[in-house]
């Protein structure tokens, strides 16, 4: 970390700082427990997962640190420790724990983390691709045909067996392709993080930011497409 924080999270921290304790109405400053009455505070819905874990909004993250923080926050929020508390506190504990678990699951996985970051930075990404990525167009059309043939064929026939063998080799190719895309994303992770670390506010930096986000979005949606095809393929062979 280098002390720079992204402007959006600065704003969010400010928002948090201005909130009041639901119980004693005193000011709560960014932490999850009221300084005065020590009651647990609901994690704001506005709070992003990175801020929740107290880590900078970067794509390469220290898994060990993430886990340690997850365990620490679990100890703070888990309903097991609120059994003797008021109903209001139990409700907060339940909501906070559920939120924390979602946040951890999202940040722990690089793909989900990237999708989440894109969502934060550039709005919803989950546009579902319905046509194959350009460079795979031919290959995937061919594959779709083979899949249909297999489904229509008698499972025990020789023809079906050779079709299945063909599918197995296609599967290997596609899975390799998936891995390549994941490697590409990892590269973009590095570029994104470097850009954030520099913290420039120039025109050029903005263009760079847009480019990285767009590339990431394209790769992610291609990857989802390929992944779905592979799932389909596996289900058909099985």
């Amino acid at each position: 970390m280098d002390g720079h924080t992204h402007s959006t999270s600065d704003r969010r921290e400010l928002q948090m700082a201005r909130s009041m304790c639901w119980h004693c109405q005193s000011e709560v400053s960014g932490e999850y427990f009221c300084d005065r009455c020590v009651k647990v505070q609901p994690v704001s819905k506005e709070l992003d997962y990175f801020t929740c874990f107290g880590i900078p909004r970067r794509l390469s993250i220290d898994q060990q640190q993430l886990e340690t923080k997850f365990y620490e926050l679990s100890r703070a929020f888990h309903p097991d420790f609120y059994q003797n508390k008021s109903g209001a506190e139990q409700t907060i504990s339940l909501g906070n724990s559920a939120m924390l678990n979602t946040a951890y699951r999202t940040l722990r996985d690089p793909i989900q983390r990237a999708e989440y970051l894109l969502d934060l930075e550039a709005g919803a990404v989950k546009e579902i691709r319905t046509t194959p990525p350009a460079d795979l167009f031919e290959e995937i059309l061919e594959l779709q045909d083979t899949l249909n043939e297999v489904r229509a064929s008698d499972r025990t026939s020789d023809a079906a067996a050779s079709l299945r063998a063909a599918l197995q080799s296609k599967r290997a190719t596609l899975e390799q392709r998936q891995r390549d895309m994941e490697a590409q994303i990892q590269q973009l992770f590095g570029q994104w993080d470097a850009l954030q670390d520099r913290g420039d506010a120039t025109e050029q930096a903005r263009a760079e930011r847009t480019r990285i986000l767009k590339e990431m979005r394209d790769i992610l949606s291609n990857r989802t497409y390929v992944k779905n095809i592979v799932n389909d393929l596996v289900a058909t062979i099985a």
Partner: peptide, 16 residues
């Protein structure tokens, strides 16, 4: 043991 966690007796263990 879980009952003891819930009653606040055992505080160092947590099941997720």
């Amino acid at each position: 043991v879980q009952a003891d966690i819930l009653s606040g007796g055992t505080t160092d263990m947590l099941l997720l």
